[in-house]
Design a protein around this nucleic acid. Structure first.
Lengths: 211, 211, 211, 211
DNA sequence: CATGAATGAGTCTTCATTCAT
DNA sequence: TATGAATGAAGACTCATTCAT
């Protein structure tokens, strides 16, 4: 393969990936506005300013776009999580936990559109779709469960059904963020929000009246 | 009106309400299997073994059935909740709380189909639908928030953003129950489940390492 | 057959025909308000305050009612027409013609509902229906054509294609009455209306400028 | 935009308008055969030999086609009418009138399908539909009324209620043409037909027996 | 690569008519 | 005779996907 060819191919690949991003951007906007199911391919191509056929040149189906968005989101969330370190010189465990929660809140708020899509779009329109979304949450709760197990081994987390509690943690986060993002209520700043979530998950709501 | 007529009318009313239940049952089954949006009226009438027109004789639209199911569910849940009493001779506060959680778990498990429908139904396809579902959850979280406020006034609940924490509680319950009901994992019995949920919501996951 | 039986039968027949009239009345009202096609059997039985099945006990179909109304209307119109008489002592031919037109106007205005139905409801929803309505108008134009022929033989009507002109007469009457009844414009009284129609049909619109 | 693109666009536009005409043609045929209301979209697409979706690609609804046909017809009719001129050197007033009637007859006969649709379509099934059709005839009778007024000011038309007489003229034309087109009776040629209609409308049916 | 016209299976809902009671 | 629950064929319209240009 000569260099001219090589260069041409690279540029082509680049153009292709730009186009892809353009479509993804449009979908993010459209889906978050009307919801995945209510958004038609017509909406998408209008927003992306491309022809109908072009859409199918970059994605095999409407659902494939959703998959890509899902993947993107998972990557971002996973990327923010830091393993709790007990190494000498590290921040306190609580501080590290708070950091994780805070960063997740940041990611979700900064990807408001995507987050709303994820939290609202539930299962039911097609089996494939169901499976993808389910898997996504399973992966998330898997990460949380791992953290809980680690915490237990470090004596930081009380004995509990880690699988079940992971779902609790995931569920509380989902519900709070969905309400926050869709209601637009920003009376609490991100710090406060992260703190409340942390407090709730770490300590619950109870004040032990004592013996 | 003579007695014969009276009797006929009564029987007619009864038959009518039986038919209605038959349709509701079919919808519960179908909706919980495929989801509300993915279920067509055709699915429903097949399951109910009735003619297309008969469906519309008992419900003005597909959504009306959903409304009815929603109402039924809310009634059941609301009916299980008991106000925490500190009157002399009452069970301990913790026991009363546990009772509430346990009864909710019971209701949800015993209405598996309905619960699954509620927990997974997508928003976004129909504004009316969205609104109904939203309102339903708002009512639920309102109940929880009221309980938290009461708890605070009784010195049982720590100071917190009750609205936000109510969403946390709701979210954790939703997620756990959805996973349990859809995965079919019954490794934990209902008592254990209620206990875990209680522990999580009351005490969080943390063991304070102390000073 | 004994007399008791006979009496019973008579009373039954009478009840039956009363019931029939009650239904016809309701149909007249309903059809004239919404039009035949837009009126459902449900509308009719509500208006008649009878059960669905009862309707089909007295009429084999919705269209059959329309036929009956049609017949009734034709009878009334035909009944108003008087043969023009040239016998000594009769009113003048013009006066007799005016009388006919005037009586038709009366009948149509006094059966406003029925008239509107007839004039508005056109063909197109079912072949049977088409045929009935067509026949009705054919009978009417037949009567008019007969009158024209008679007029010709009496030297009162100019030579013309009587069939075609009969349609013209019928058409002009239909259109004028439809507009009058549906617009509610009563700026002209019945006398004036009849006079204008007569003038138009007898003399046309033209003033011969002369030689 | 380069020339190749330009050419492509032009051809596309042309194909589009051809398709549109193909559908309009099919509708004309189908509607005139069964009537607008009785014709289903299924009938139309069968006749046009296109897919269901294609129909909705060119027209937003079944009624929209009707609107288009209506507009087309009105344009044709309005286009045939010539204002009566009394300028020196013009044809005689009678000849000009005859010309108008004759041309209308031509248009109606040459658009047989369309004419039949217009003349028989039922009102009452759809308010929008009713309104469109009504407006159409109001426009037509408006044109006629204007002509009558002009005639009066020129001393050609006798004093009369121009509005009412306009309806008479319209009605007579409608009825005659409907019968002619649907019965297929062509015993009279177009010249004779126009002459009869003219005579009827100008002079009526009467021979004044004189004093 | 890009286009957009064409497709057709699938959706909810209506309503004249029948029939067991 | 009267009832009204049940029927099911038919209707208009949507939209993800394909494919010839």
């Amino acid at each position: 393969m000569d260099e001219a060819q090589d260069g041409r191919k690279q540029r082509a690949t680049q153009r292709r990936s730009e186009r892809r991003l353009q479509i993804l951007d449009a979908c993010r906007k459209v889906f978050s506005l009307k919801g995945y199911h209510a958004s038609s391919v017509a909406d998408v191509i209008t927003a992306a300013n491309i022809a109908r056929g072009t859409f199918y040149l970059y994605f095999p189906s409407k659902r494939a776009v959703f998959d890509a968005l899902l993947e993107e989101m998972f990557g971002q969330i996973a990327g923010t999580l830091r393993r709790i370190s007990t190494a000498r010189g590290s921040d306190s465990v609580l501080e590290q936990m708070y950091g994780n929660v805070r960063r997740i809140v940041d990611v979700l708020e900064e990807n408001r559109d995507l987050t709303i899509i994820l939290l609202r779009e539930a299962v039911g329109l097609d089996a494939d779709f169901d499976h993808k979304l389910n898997t996504f949450y399973e992966r998330l709760s898997g990460v949380i469960e791992g953290a809980l197990r680690l915490g237990q081994s470090m004596g930081l987390v009380r004995p509990c059904d880690t699988r079940l509690v992971a779902y609790c943690v995931l569920g509380s986060l989902k519900e709070v963020m969905l309400r926050r993002l869709t209601s637009g209520d920003q009376s609490l700043d991100r710090d406060g929000l992260a703190q409340e979530i942390m407090d709730y998950n770490l300590r619950g709501v109870f004040i032990d009246p004592g013996p």
